[in-house]
Design a protein around this nucleic acid. Structure first.
Lengths: 127, 127
DNA sequence: TCAGTTTTCTACGCTTCGTAGAACTGTAAC
DNA sequence: GTTACAGTTCTACGAAGCGTAGAAAACTGA
């Protein structure tokens, strides 16, 4: 249950980018703005209904990616884990499903940039 | 377009396991047998229709995971790349979607077993 | 209590996947 | 070369996931 839809991902990106918990309305506005800027001029930002955003947030909550404060009246939503954590977890998930983990790691390392290889060496150094 | 359904995955597992190209019928039989043994006794193997297997193979072909020899009359199907290659590619895909690649790698390395860390060190050594 | 805001319920259309019948096609034997 | 059969493609349906949002319910401030 790892894959996200397009809008779900867009919402997660916003939650991961912002450091504070956000309300559905805030997110709705940000979605309008970001899609307007990123998709270039002429492609006006999607004016989503707030209910749409709320539905998506509920689904993300059910998936365990988002948690909400139910106390405050406009509920505030935030990502459960950082994007980096989440992505790393995904990578482990992908890797975990393989019986030949070492072979996978070999292939993986084989196609990593030199800069990243260096990063990895450093990270592995102090273990 | 990375995720596979349950049956699609089962078929890929068979294609990855066998070294030779297989026909739809062969796969149908293997599916019946493997699900019988793996799921324990009492759970009889799924007797799928051959058309079902063919449909799945077509879909896998469209996804670029499988290729078939159209020359021979019972078409023969085989995985385009090894499971290890495929999995490693998936990992790169997951990683590639992140703007903070180094942070992801750090988290990833952080939760790798010591044995695998050793493997990684060796792999990174001779680059 | 009332009006406005926020959340939940319900729903519809689209796509993917498991599943397979129906129809078509190639092949081998007669 | 016509026929019978194995193999392949076409078409389709039901379930689930996702984008989308209206309608209804719940809440809050006045």
């Amino acid at each position: 249950m790892a894959s996200l839809g397009e809008l779900e991902r867009a919402v997660m990106d916003l939650l991961w980018a912002g450091q504070e918990a956000a309300t559905a309305n805030t997110l709705r506005d940000q979605l309008a703005r970001t899609s307007a800027t990123q998709d270039g001029p002429g492609h006006e930002g999607k004016e989503l209904a707030v209910t749409t955003v709320l539905t998506v947030l509920s689904r993300l909550e059910k998936k365990g990616l988002v948690e909400r404060e139910r106390g405050t009246r406009p509920h505030r939503y935030q990502a459960v884990s950082s994007r980096a954590d989440h992505t790393a977890e995904l990578m482990h998930e992908v890797l975990g499903s393989a019986p030949d983990r070492e072979a996978v790691l070999a292939r993986f390392i084989g196609s990593v940039s030199e800069g990243e290889a260096e990063t990895l060496r450093k990270l592995l150094g102090h273990l």
